[in-house]
Design a protein around this nucleic acid. Structure first.
Length: 127
RNA sequence: CGAGUCGGUCGGGCGGCCGCGUCGGCCCGGGACGCACCUGGUGUGCGGUCCGGGUCGCCGAGGAAAGUCCGGGCUCCACAGGGCAGGGUGGUUGCCAACGGCAACCCGGCGCGAGCCGCGGGACAGUGCCACAGAGAACAGACCGCCUCCGCCACUCCGGCGGCGGAGGUCAGGGUGAAACGGUGGUGUAAGAGACCACCAGCGCCCCGGGUGACCGGGGCGGCUCGGUAAACCCCACCCGGAGCAAGGUCGAGAGCGCCGGUCGCGAGACCGGCGUGCGCAGGCGUUCGAGGGCUGCCCGCCCGAGCCUGCGGGUGGACCGCUGGAGUGUGCCGGUGACGGCACACCGAGAUGGAUGGUCGCCGAACGGGAGUGCCGAGAGGCGCCCGGGAACAGAACCCGGCUUACAGACCGACUCGUCCG
RNA sequence: UGGGGUAUGGUGUAAUUGGCAACACUACGGAUUCUGAUUCCGUCAUUCUAGGUUCGAGUCCUAGUACCCCAG
């Protein structure tokens, strides 16, 4: 589990990011990126949340996807500017994707989303 | 050795790096509180408490955590009672907190057997249904056949015999069907038939014996045979309040309203702070005539009772408790055929909240697939061994238990049955 | 968490008390035509799965699978 300050907590948080954020997809997942404070007022650290639909698989499959995504997202979270919310939505194809696949797709999706949002995003150090 | 039955246990292991949650210890910082001290500052120290951070340590998914099919605990709402309706269960005796669960036994069916399977009460309380086929299907029926009698015709070795038609008798035989006035043998008869007899099967009643009981064994009598379906309606016996941890509780916030104080204003009033209550508007029904609620539906009766219902708008939508120590787990002894019960000792084994219990890498690794073949056993098939590949099933706590059902790669242990061979 | 519903040819729907699974469209094959369209004929079902009751199950019972809906 990510630290409390780095997580999205309520349905309203998720709805705001999915509604207003920039979207970018890559193979197994879709990334939504939204800056809560565009004026530049720092409102805390970057936060992240995960969405895995029931169509993806049963509970074991869904939980495994979240567990694999969590450390991948954690690496990016420290490089995101404060006030940025991130929602990672896993597609059914993620059910039988390895961690390397997910990490590759996450990097690509984050790059395009950040370019569209005009937010500078530092690259996570990937092996 | 092969084939199989039942019960039980486990359900990948080790390590490196990174990471998460609860609880506890230590350290640091902060908030309010209490106490103490003085140089009387919103100061310093101490104490417990709350929050945040760091660090160390313990522990951290399952046999089904699943489906949510039953039964309970817990919480709230309730509850004088009666009748009808509704739902559930269905051999007997036990076990259990309870159950639709479990055990043993009975009955029926299957299997050579160990064993397995069964919604397994009632069809003389009543109603309904039994298609098609078939002559006839529910207090049945004469199509073919068999037999008797009558009429006509033909043949005749004069004894009869055959054909057609009609009137009857008959269910033995054929054929239909899931099911056809019980089966075999005889007596009897024109031919037949429980019409009669013997044995057997089955039904009902009675008696004796065994068993707590379901039921079993034996004997006698009776009428002579009397279908199936209740997972069709139904009858009988027994059981059944409702909702659910988003239950429910504590604290905080809150719009509106009321009161008090302060500031501004000549004033109406506006703003700020504190306290209390817990919102406003519209419509309908109702407080003697009783709305509404009370074991869900209906009726009778009884009780509570001043609010209730609908629509529109607004506020809060936070934290904590409940939350894990329980019909708990393990071992031993005792009672019981067993389910289970009793006693003693030991142990604490997850508590998340967009939701932790992991991510990644390396090594070892069962099933399984392929190969070399002849190292060992064997007549052979094959087995053990060797090499390569391969890499672990079903599945994730969400208040907690007892079951049931369903999914599941495999491994191991115990008891037993059948077959073959050897002694 | 609680409750309800559906599943039948490729698709959309029928099937009285249990008794021959029906209709329309599509697809395919054939006929008609010089060739097409139209028309006509024919073919296409494990009634979601497994088990049971019954002589007999789409229908009744039990268990499961998939999908959909409602309330908080």
């Amino acid at each position: 589990m990510l630290p409390t300050g780095s997580r999205l907590h309520t349905a309203a948080d998720f709805a705001a990011v999915l509604r207003h954020g920039r979207r970018a997809g890559a193979g197994t997942l879709v990334v939504h990126l939204w800056n809560r404070a565009p004026g530049g007022v720092p409102t805390g650290t970057a936060r992240a949340g995960f969405v895995v639909s029931r169509k993806t698989g049963n509970s074991v499959v869904r939980h495994r996807i979240t567990r694999r995504l969590r450390p991948l997202v954690r690496r990016h979270l420290t490089h995101l500017p404060s006030g940025v919310d991130l929602v990672v939505r896993a597609l059914p194809a993620a059910a039988n994707a390895s961690s390397a696949d997910l990490g590759h797709d996450l990097d690509a999706a984050l790059r395009t989303a950040a370019r569209r949002a005009g937010t500078p995003v530092g690259h996570g150090t990937r092996p």
